[in-house]
Design a protein around this nucleic acid. Structure first.
Lengths: 185, 185
DNA sequence: ACGCTAGCAGAATGCTCATTCTGTTTGTCG
DNA sequence: CGACAAACAGAATGAGCATTCTGCTAGCGT
């Protein structure tokens, strides 16, 4: 086949990345072999290496996917037109945590401690999420608490920081709570 | 040589475990080979396998060591006779964080998501630390805030939970902040 | 002081796994 | 509709690594 249309190519990449995420969630980043991903995706070695340069590249894609997914959920709540107060915001975020993704997320933290590429991805995503939280808290302060916008932005900073920290801790607890089970019916 | 005295044996085990922790902090749990630990400890393969059954055993020892170290620091502050308020307690705990140990700590979280033995160690240590925090907060509520002991114990629970979460988040940030540098003198 | 055996060094082994290579198939463009 | 090259399958390759094996050495009990 000649060059696949760009849409198709992205689809294959996503298919592979999703299979990788499932494997990582089950066995961890390093204990997952390419053979596992081959089995999970139903493709072959040649195919995978046609879409990703190597395993590190795949791990990065998986990390980006998981973190972006969590950022998306957060963005949806943040964009709400009736801003929830911080406690409610946190509760909603926690309720939206998926155990499997939490596991991979925590694994990326561990990997980030020694892998600069992953580290950059994690730090960037964390900053982005904190910025979203900041917007959300600011909106709440302005619309519900009737603060001045400028002052609201400032006092939102420590609150956003706090919500982020508590969210991440909860992510850790979720990841540790569900060890390896999950027989997907 | 005949059987080493028990003290000497423990010393060797510690020497190996400490070398392992240094390697893990530098390269991560899985990217550290036994050869690395051999080089770092100045011992040999035979010697290491005389003291630890296998690499998984060593990883467990390292995890226990790092987590126990953090628990020890916490315990010292918790035992203070002039209990600090929660914010101060948290600040002190954060000030006592060592970047290298933070990295290994976060790595153990990642490993815990798929490795039951490590998971048990992490969960156990986390519970133990939370219990210490609970004691500390209770003491503060009783001695400084003059609450009734029974009521203090109860309202200390969510506070301890919160302090623990914020501490863990800070541990993560520390681990991510210092990538791989650390030229030991 | 001496010998026995546990501790230790370092080479050898064998396996796992990422990556590459060789054909084969199939989607797209002219 | 046909042909060309990309996409794919699956076997082959080779490196790295945990673990074991073979002796040698030295600390401890006597």
């Amino acid at each position: 086949m000649p060059r696949l249309t760009d849409a198709r190519k992205e689809l294959r990449r996503a298919q592979i990345a999703e299979a990788a995420v499932r494997c990582f969630g089950r066995n961890g980043l390093e204990r997952t072999s390419i053979a596992d991903i081959i089995a999970e995706s139903g493709l072959s070695a040649g195919s995978i290496y046609a879409h990703y340069r190597n395993k590190a590249d795949l791990v990065q894609a998986a990390a980006r996917e998981v973190l972006a997914e969590r950022a998306k959920v957060l963005g949806e709540h943040a964009a709400s037109d009736t801003p929830p107060d911080p406690d409610e915001l946190l509760a909603r975020l926690i309720a939206a945590i998926d155990p499997a993704e939490a596991r991979v997320g925590v694994q990326t933290w561990g990997e980030a401690t020694t892998n600069p590429a992953i580290r950059d991805i994690v730090v960037d995503m964390t900053n982005r999420m904190r910025a979203m939280l900041h917007d959300c808290v600011t909106a709440w302060l302005v619309k519900v608490e009737h603060r001045e916008p400028a002052e609201a932005r400032e006092s939102a900073t420590p609150i956003a920081h706090r919500v982020m920290a508590l969210y991440q801790a909860e992510l850790l607890y979720t990841a540790l709570r569900s060890p390896t089970e999950e027989t997907t019916s």
